[in-house]
C-alpha cells in the first residue's frame, strides 16, 4: 500500500545543503529520526502523506471486509473476521497517532479523506461479492501489504517503523487466516472451489497493482529511497510477492488468471503478463467500482456520529466546570 502513498508526493525542500547533508548522514548511519528532531520539510511532508494514506487505507479497508461480518458462514469465521476488522481499525489508530507526531491532526487527515484530497489504497475500491473474497483478501491483499510493510519496520522515521512491527505481526496472522479460508473452500464442494477461483480471478490483478507503477514510471522513489522511507522498488516487491504466491496457488489447485505467467529460469522468478495500468490509474484517481460508496459510508459514519462526539466534549466540559466549582 505504501507505494501508492508516494504517488504525487512532493519531496522538495528549501533547506541549506549543509543541513540536508547532516540529515542524510544520520540516515546513512541508520539512525532513527524522532518527531522532535530537525528534519527537512520534504521528509516531513512525504511521511505525513504516506502514513496518512496508510492509515486511511486501514480505515476504509474495514468496509469491504465488514461487509461480510453479518454473513460469515460459521460462528468461528464470524469471530475471526470481527477480530481481523478490529485489528485493521487498530492499525489505523496507531498510524494516525504516528502521523500526529509530525504535526497534523487526525481530524485534519479525516477531512482530507472525506474531501478526496487524501487517497487510500486503490484495492479497497473493489467490491467483496462472495464469502471467498474474505479469504482471498487475507491471502493476497494482506500478503501484498506484508511485502510492502516488512521493509517499513526499518523505515528511518522511528514512530512509523515501530508501529509497523506490530502491524506486520497482525497482518501476517491475517494472511495465514485468509489462506486457510481459501484452502477450506478449495478442498470443499465444487461450488465452494468455483467461488474461490472466481474471487482469485477478480482480486489477482488489483493485488499486484498494489505495489504501484513500474520502477521506470515511478517518479518519487529516488528521494524516498535515499531517505530510507522506502527500501525496495515497486517492481522488486511485486516480484517477491508473485514468486511467493504462485506456489501457494498451485498447492490449492487454483489457477492464477494470467496466461503469460511462467517461470524464468535465468532470473529465478516468474515473468508475468501485462498489467492494465489504465485500470490502475482510473481506480487511483477515484473511478473504482466502490470509490463513491466507500467515501459516502465513511462520511455518513462521521456525520451521523457528530452529535455523539459533541456530547462527549460537552460532558467533559461540564465535569471540568463542576469539579472546579467544587474545589
Amino acid at each position: 500500500m505504501y507505494s501508492q502513498g508516494l504517488i504525487g508526493a512532493d519531496g522538495s525542500t528549501t533547506e541549506t545543503q549543509e543541513f540536508l547533508d547532516a540529515f542524510q548522514k544520520r540516515i546513512d548511519a541508520e539512525e532513527k529520526i524522532e518527531p522532535t528532531d530537525a528534519m527537512p520539510e520534504g521528509y516531513r511532508r512525504t511521511l505525513v502523506r504516506q502514513i496518512g494514506q496508510h492509515a486511511h487505507s486501514e480505515i476504509v479497508g474495514m468496509l469491504p471486509e465488514g461487509n461480510w461480518i453479518t454473513r460469515a458462514p460459521s460462528l468461528r469465521r464470524k469471530a475471526a473476521l470481527l477480530a481481523k476488522v478490529q485489528d485493521e481499525g487498530g492499525h489505523g489508530l496507531y498510524l494516525y497517532s504516528a502521523a500526529e507526531t509530525l504535526g497534523v491532526s487526525r481530524e485534519q487527515m479525516t477531512e482530507e479523506l472525506h474531501s478526496g484530497k487524501a487517497k487510500y489504497s486503490s484495492i479497497f475500491n473493489y467490491p467483496t461479492l462472495t464469502w471467498a473474497d474474505i479469504g482471498i483478501i487475507g491471502w493476497l491483499v494482506d500478503g501484498a501489504a506484508i511485502m510492502n510493510q516488512i521493509p517499513l519496520c526499518r523505515c528511518s522515521f522511528g514512530p512509523y517503523a515501530r508501529a509497523m512491527i506490530r502491524v506486520c505481526k497482525e497482518e501476517s496472522f491475517h494472511q495465514r487466516q485468509g489462506y486457510e479460508i481459501v484452502m477450506t473452500l478449495a478442498q470443499g464442494t465444487p461450488e465452494q472451489k468455483a467461488m474461490a477461483q472466481d474471487a482469485l480471478n477478480r482480486w489477482w490483478w488489483p493485488s499486484i497493482m498494489m505495489f504501484g507503477p513500474h520502477d521506470a514510471d515511478s517518479q518519487h522513489s529516488d528521494q524516498s529511497m535515499a531517505w530510507k522511507i522506502k527500501r525496495f522498488s515497486n517492481d522488486e516487491l511485486r516480484q517477491k510477492f508473485i514468486d511467493a504466491t504462485v506456489p501457494q496457488a498451485e498447492y490449492l489447485g487454483l489457477t492464477i488468471p494470467d496466461p503469460d505467467l511462467k517461470w524464468n529460469e535465468e532470473k529465478q522468478g516468474y515473468d508475468h503478463g501485462r498489467i492494465d495500468w489504465d485500470e490502475f490509474w482510473r481506480v487511483v484517481k477515484g473511478h473504482g467500482p466502490m470509490a463513491r460508496d466507500r467515501i459516502k459510508d465513511r462520511k455518513a459514519a462521521w456525520d451521523n456520529g457528530a452529535w455523539v462526539r459533541e456530547a462527549a466534549l460537552a460532558h467533559a466540559e461540564k465535569r471540568r466546570t463542576r469539579k472546579m466549582a467544587a474545589e
Binding site: I59, M62, L63, G66, I69, T70, L82, V85, Q86, G89, G92, L93, Y96, R106, D297, A300, A301, W302, N304, G305, A306, V308, R309
Partner: peptide, 9 residues
C-alpha cells in the same frame, strides 16, 4: 453491524 460505521475510531 456498527463495525466500520461508529461515531469515532
Amino acid at each position: 453491524e456498527w463495525c466500520g460505521h461508529a461515531p469515532m475510531l
